[in-house]
Design a protein around this nucleic acid. Structure first.
Length: 825
DNA sequence: AGCACGCCGACT
DNA sequence: GTCGGCGTGCTC
């Protein structure tokens, strides 16, 4: 009997192994196996087992090797998941093994935890082979045993397993496969916590004197809500341990060993008050979905509900039908950033502990626990980000994809799948309902809904008679000319926005300010020689982060101290260009000294639960003005927020990416939706230099259909999605010349394929050209965009390219194929 | 992806 | 003269 085994390598073929007699019962498709591969062992998955008659035809068993072991009594990837993974692998041009690795908890395949233990008192026979003798010698009489990994490390990489098995058979040692570790009940972490507040500037100057880095660290921790994990401070944030110690020695902070912050999701409670009763509009939508979910193939629905229209209640009612009345299971996908205790709380209020939450802060063991609970049917609903689409739920009844337009559903590394598309396929295969929800649907889904491929449902009004907030456009071009407006740099806080904020402060209401750009200023330029400080490893300028007093690269981990003079010519006249959230924070702070500010962007939320800490403060009204990047645009529901200000709606609108306009529209619409969610009503001010731009104009008039119509027209002309399908092929390498030549070669090869396959006008090859960011992490990047009206053409060409062109090459050049790219930067 | 095998410069 | 660089090629 032979098994086809999928390995988590970038090789799309499967490998054939002989299945030893005693493993036959367990060697089922989807089971994990340990196999010898080249000189080492790998964990893979059985893709299929050859039937006896097929085997007879193949002959030649001589070159095949045998499985070392089947690691599962029951396959970890049930048939349903295996078939879904196959689809993902085929569609996104990855190997089945790579997909399974992403789909299943990492403890199942990360490293083998096999331990070798000597058998006490066993007498080694004289006829041992040299390898066998070596293993026994190495193992000695270590009672606790030693791992195969250790063996490899100390004795070298080679295939040890056959010898180990022989020794095991003769009773000279034992192999114990440890079950994957489950979550330790208590984990600890070292946390730096501010113990003394320094409210005034003078007190700060006194406290720190010339200790600049300590002050920067102090303020960084302060920003993150008063405490941060030391590992994070020393790692990602780039402070050294002496700086941490300095703060402690000064008596400003302490280091505590704490039991890990209890998972806030575990404690997420039901919100106060009873579950709302659906409005007639919601009722209608719910009824249609419930009717659908009672049929054998419910299909896919797109629910377009404006911000505040109560989509979550619709989800809850559908889940009640599926889980409570039908006894089936359900998946709810949410963008990672919206996975807040508040969101989870609403689900928990109804379904209690039948819900599993899969979020990024789970340890591998915790993730595995949740996974097993779902698989065993102990939990019936999973709420999670992208990869939760692979949750092992038996008898799936519904898949909900909230904020379906979100780009974060697309995975940025292999396999580059889009969870929304996988959701549609999985639901279809399972006979489950697929429900996509958004206030600003992706143009792909919108088009599918309009063409009838999906059913369209709409919630055009806010619940409880709430109205969409009034939007005022502030034309920055006019503002800039306005005389006498010298209180703030032009373009950051216009007079109308300033007055609006002031009014909120007076009334004790809250404001949200959006600027989708981190840091203080986007680049530093010498006013004398014009030099802009670039990242040494990427072709982008470094962003100045004032609090940390450092220049950071937003594309790699590079950071360096901020210069006080130009490194090129020595001039001290440095210009800080382009504004980010840090600068907004400073200007707003100076303009409204009494206001309590909170800033929320990746720099203030890098600690584990810091973004919940910030949002909690907003909820408790300890914050008057919340400002930040796109992470404040989604899902927040604070009734006391009556003002939303968009500092610069034009950020990103001119990126050389065909989705730039769509993203701008979505962002502005979504953030505008944060205003006026309570009885107090609300107002939105949008500052822009491009009031006529369709994305900006439609967002300010809450006009999704108008935007879609206009943008779709443009996409049609250009043959861009959803009218054409695309594949972005990125060639990268460390030698600029070689990358360009590699890209040329690839393009020529593709052009030849086009001719040979008679694809003529069905395949458009654009490029090669340097990627808009043409160097990242020392690798030069060129790309070729393939475009075709037919998805099948893209699929076939992509598969051909990976298997016939890219597979044959190794070395410095890498070829990455991104199907249905979300961004082509 | 690893990890081999295989041909040309700086070291004991 | 050997150690070691990383350029092709294969892994059931």
């Amino acid at each position: 009997v032979r098994a086809e085994v999928a390995l988590p390598l970038p090789l799309r073929q499967t490998f054939t192994y002989l299945v030893p007699e005693e493993m036959r019962a367990a060697a089922l498709p989807g089971a994990r196996v340990l196999v010898p591969f080249g000189r080492r062992d790998h964990i893979g998955w059985i893709a299929s087992v050859a039937a006896a008659e097929v085997e007879a035809e193949q002959g030649d068993a001589g070159s095949l090797r045998a499985l070392h072991a089947v690691l599962d009594a029951e396959p970890t990837a049930p048939a349903e998941l295996l078939s879904l993974s196959r689809w993902v692998a085929d569609y996104y041009l990855a190997s089945l093994g790579q997909v399974l690795r992403t789909a299943l908890p990492s403890v199942l395949h990360d490293t083998t935890s096999d331990r070798l233990r000597p058998v006490p008192g066993a007498e080694p026979p004289p006829n041992l082979s040299e390898v066998e003798a070596e293993i026994l010698r190495w193992l000695g009489d270590a009672e606790a045993g030693r791992s195969v990994t250790q063996l490899r490390r100390t004795r070298g990489q080679r295939s040890w397993w056959p010898a180990i098995r022989r020794l095991e058979e003769r009773g000279l040692l034992r192999v114990e496969t440890e079950p994957p570790r489950t979550a330790p009940s208590v984990r600890t972490e070292r946390v730096l916590r501010i113990t003394r507040e320094l409210p005034t500037l003078t007190s700060r100057e006194e406290a720190f004197g010339r200790a600049k880095r300590q002050r920067e660290l102090y303020e960084t921790v302060e920003e993150a809500g008063g405490s941060l994990e030391t590992s994070h401070i020393a790692g990602q944030l780039g402070f050294s341990y002496p700086v941490i110690k300095g703060l402690v020695d000064r008596g400003l902070a302490s280091i505590d060993t704490v039991e890990v912050a209890r998972d806030p999701y575990a404690a997420a409670d039901a919100p106060e008050g009873s579950t709302p009763v659906p409005t007639p509009a919601q009722r209608q939508v719910i009824d249609r979905l419930v009717a659908a979910v009672r049929t054998p193939s419910p299909g896919t629905f797109l629910l377009r509900g404006i911000t505040g229209s109560g989509k979550t209640l619709v989800y809850l009612e559908v889940l009640k039908e599926v889980v409570e009345r039908q006894g089936r299971t359900a998946i709810v996908l949410v963008p990672e950033i919206s996975l807040t205790p508040q969101t989870v709380g609403r689900f928990r209020a109804v379904f209690g502990d039948r819900i599993a939450v899969l979020h990024s802060a789970l340890s591998p063991g915790e993730r595995y626990d949740e996974w097993r609970a779902l698989r065993a049917g102990r939990k019936r609903i999973v709420v999670g980000a992208r990869s939760a689409i692979f949750a092992p739920l038996p008898d799936l009844g519904a898949v909900v994809v909230d904020e379906e337009h979100e780009g974060s559903y697309k995975q940025g590394e292999t396999p580059r799948y889009h969870a929304r598309e996988v959701a549609v396929v999985r639901a279809e295969e399972a006979g489950a309902l697929c429900l996509l929800g958004s206030a600003t649907p992706s143009l792909e889904s919108w088009t599918n809904a309009r063409s009838g491929k999906y059913a369209l449902l709409e919630l055009p009004d806010r619940v409880a008679g709430g109205r969409l907030p009034e939007v005022r456009v502030v034309d920055l071009r006019a503002e800039r000319g306005a005389a006498g407006d010298r209180k703030a740099p032009p373009g950051l806080l216009s007079r109308p926005l300033r007055e609006a904020i002031e009014a909120r402060l007076e009334r004790g209401e809250q404001s949200i300010l959006l600027l989708n750009r981190r840091g203080y200023s986007t680049f530093i330029q010498c006013r004398d020689c014009g030099e802009v400080r670039q990242c040494p490893d990427c072709n982008v300028s470094l962003t100045f982060h004032r609090r940390r007093s450092r220049l950071l690269c937003h594309h790699c981990a590079h950071q360096e101290p901020a210069p006080d003079r130009c490194p090129g010519c020595g001039s001290a006249d440095l210009g800080f260009r382009g504004r980010g959230t840090e600068q907004v924070e400073r200007v707003v702070g100076e303009t409204f000294p009494a206001a309590r500010l909170a800033r929320m962007d990746v720099d203030t939320t890098s600690g584990k639960w810091s973004h919940h800490r910030i949002l909690d403060r907003v909820e408790r009204r300890e914050v008057d003005i919340l400002l930040g990047t796109q992470m404040i645009a989604k899902g927040l529901d604070f009734p006391n927020v009556t003002l939303v200000g968009v500092i610069d709606a034009d950020v990103g609108i001119n990126l050389p990416d065909f989705r730039a306009s769509e993203r701008t529209f979505q962002l502005v619409t979504q953030v505008a939706g944060r205003a006026g969610r309570g009885p107090l009503g609300g107002e939105v001010l949008v500052q822009t230099s491009l009031p006529g731009n369709p994305a900006v104009r439609c967002a300010t008039t809450h006009d999704f259909p108008g935007f879609a119509a206009e943008e779709l027209e443009h996409r049609r002309e250009m043959g861009y999605p959803p009218f054409g399908r695309m594949l972005n092929l990125v060639v990268s390498g460390t030698e600029e010349r070689a990358v360009q030549e590699g890209a040329d070669e690839a393009a020529t090869w593709l052009a030849g394929l086009r001719t040979a396959a008679g694809l003529g006008d069905e395949l458009d090859i654009m490029g090669p050209a340097p990627c808009p960011i043409d160097r990242i992490r020392r690798r030069w990047r060129w790309h070729i965009l393939l475009r075709s009206p037919r998805a099948a053409v893209i699929g076939r060409v992509g598969a051909y390219f990976t298997d016939r062109f890219a597979a044959g090459r190794s070395g410095d050049l890498r070829y990455v194929l991104d199907r249905d790219p979300v961004s082509v930067l």
